[in-house]
């Protein structure tokens, strides 16, 4: 069952399309990642899903079971959440809860619960103006959850955080996954791999690859050879460019990563290559690609 379906979603700014015929289908009960390099149109897409921006063309359909204003069913955390600095953390979440339709008593109760979930118990009486970036991010998650939405949308929730803040937020998202559907954007594949079920890789406003993460991993894992040499390998690498067993190649001065079709043929060809041997191999390793390589390949090429 899909919570949100977009069809041919398009957004144009002064003639250039940031989002270009995007088809998404966000399923209920799982965590979905919108993955792509900076400028791929992720934030624009999320802004249209939340209703903050109007699509130039295309449609957004929310699950028929949830009628009325779709904002009721969505909790949203922007990439750079901006709060009223004069409020305390507690006041803000209560305010957000009341705007989401809770009574004052319910909102207060829910706030209590959420602030301890996100670990802001100690600073809830402090003005938000004095919060750190990580605290604001966690407060932002609390305000997104306060009205018990069906779907929470997080825009780059961990990108601006230090490693500890990042770990905290990812851990929190893992907990939330049990209770609610999550859609989040990121440009770091690793974050997506850690907690997601579905991913959509977008580039230039279009979906390039989509599907179940485990399935994608299986489908796109290709045998790979890592090569390291003492002498520069750069010049030599041109000589294997047109071999039929080669899929993709990428490297620096002394290192080369080669994705291949047939591992046996490739190994044979490489190990019997006289010129390569003269470059003094220091490392020859056979492995499988990760999605990272796929991501790089898709988004860079």
């Amino acid at each position: 069952m899909s919570l949100i379906i977009t069809e041919q979603l398009t957004k144009t700014f002064n003639g250039t399309s940031a989002v270009d015929g995007l088809n998404l289908s966000i399923k209920e009960g799982i965590c979905t990642a919108l993955l792509g390099p900076n400028g791929a149109g992720k934030t624009t897409t999320l802004n249209m899903l939340t209703g903050l921006m109007n699509p130039t063309s295309g449609t957004i359909t929310f699950d028929q079971r949830y009628r009325g204003d779709r904002r009721q069913f969505i909790g949203y955390l922007p990439q750079y959440p901006k709060f009223y600095g004069w409020m305390t953390g507690e006041e803000y979440v209560v305010y957000a809860g009341q705007l989401g339709g809770l009574s004052k008593i319910d909102a207060t109760k829910k706030t209590e619960e959420l602030l301890s979930l996100v670990g802001l118990d100690d600073s809830k009486k402090k003005r938000i103006a004095g919060y750190s970036g990580g605290m604001k991010q966690r407060l932002g998650i609390a305000q997104a959850l306060v009205h018990s939405p069906k779907l929470i949308i997080l825009d780059e929730p961990v990108s601006a955080l230090d490693p500890i803040g990042r770990r905290d937020v990812l851990e929190l998202m893992r907990k939330l996954k049990e209770k609610t559907s999550i859609l989040f954007s990121t440009h770091v594949l690793h974050d997506a791999e850690e907690i997601c079920d579905d991913i959509f890789i977008v580039k230039d406003g279009k979906v390039v690859i989509e599907g179940d993460l485990v399935e994608l991993q299986r489908k796109y894992q290709k045998p790979t050879i890592y090569l390291e040499t003492e002498e520069s390998i750069e010049y030599w690498s041109h000589s294997i460019k047109n071999m039929d067993w080669l899929r993709h190649m990428q490297g620096t001065k002394n290192k080369l990563t080669i994705t291949v079709n047939d591992i046996d043929v490739a190994r044979e060809a490489l190990l019997s290559n006289e010129t390569l041997r003269k470059l003094k191999i220091t490392n020859f390793e056979i492995a499988k690609t990760t999605l990272e390589d796929l991501f790089m390949e898709v988004t860079a090429g």
Binding site: T50, G51, L52, D69, R71, Q72, I74, Y76, L77, P78, Y80, P81, K82, F83, Y84, A96, L99, G100, G101, G140, Q143, H147
Partner: peptide, 13 residues
């Protein structure tokens, strides 16, 4: 300008 209205207006306001 400051963006404080964003998190208010994504609520059913």
């Amino acid at each position: 300008n400051s963006g404080t209205n964003i998190m208010v207006l994504v609520k059913p306001v």
